[in-house]
Design a protein around this nucleic acid. Structure first.
Lengths: 153, 153
DNA sequence: GTCGAATTGACAATATATTGTCAATTGTTT
DNA sequence: AAACAATTGACAATATATTGTCAATTCGAC
């Protein structure tokens, strides 16, 4: 296989990632709509859920690759809707902690079940080994890209 | 491998796609910045380039999964900057055709070279077959997802 | 050809994202 | 502890995206 063909495959993979990103976001919006959520709101709630402990807005932003301001706005929305609340942070007077309310926890649990169902459908007819191989490759690509960006800056 | 583990792998793959999408967009912005472009503008120009013929704004939107309005705004910007121009459409009185100017063509050619260089770096140390296997799997995932969305609507 | 449905660009209104600035706070260095 | 740099939330300004509406136009059914 020539370098040209390899590059072509990888370029097509990049384009496919763009496509899938859009599709997944759409699926996320569909799954969350019944709860008054969106993919973006789900992402913020998920960050707190995955951390297993309250996080500050800035921490969520760093973990998810979002700006502080974007997370702040979403967190404020989520508080208004009752999915999360702010608690004083003993380690930082200004940086309040975002934590999930019971309603937020319950919604996330329900959403996780819906997501599990969705991903099961998504995997129909696909070989498990092929999935893990693809995941490994994507992670390698991500790692290479980070190296490139680091060198470039 | 249990169904649970397969789902976990696929969920991680979805999350990795989100990560990569952000990284690729960032790389695209970096590559295009010297020309006064962005990833979004590049995408619109690329659609016309790939088609090999002038396209209407609505056609570009459909092909790229963007709204008409978003493409229209970007196309207007590109015209102001001299990268593309509008031509009368013999088949449709209102829907003008977007075509690349010489400047647009030249810039795209240069960008393609830069992209080729970037993707070569991105592929360093990766096996060609692994890339094409991953691409195949991602396309299958995309196809499955389209089926799900279609059933759901 | 005529009618109705679908497409299109323009425009407006709203929502969301990005970027920069500021003062309060925290962490680090000395 | 004093000085300085980095982080943080709040706010503002701008940029971009989304959604809905409208009239002009095109297309299809008949």
């Amino acid at each position: 296989m020539t370098q040209y063909q390899k590059n072509k495959q990888l370029t097509d993979l990049v384009l496919e990632v763009f496509q899938l990103n859009g599709q997944f976001l759409q699926a996320g919006d569909r799954l969350t709509r019944p709860f008054g959520l969106t993919s973006a709101r789900w992402q913020v709630m998920g960050a707190v859920y995955l951390a297993g402990q309250p996080l500050t807005v800035a921490q969520i932003g760093r973990r998810m690759g979002l700006s502080r301001q974007a997370v702040q706005r979403i967190a404020n929305d989520l508080e208004k809707l009752g999915f999360c609340s702010f608690a004083p942070n003993p380690d930082h007077a200004r940086a309040k902690l975002v934590l999930l309310t019971d309603k937020g926890q319950d919604t996330l649990t329900t959403l996780n079940r819906a997501q599990e169902q969705w991903v099961t459908e998504l995997g129909k007819g696909l070989d498990e080994k092929a999935i893990s191989n693809a995941l490994t490759l994507l992670r390698q690509v991500g790692h290479n890209n980070m190296t490139i960006e680091k060198d470039t800056e």
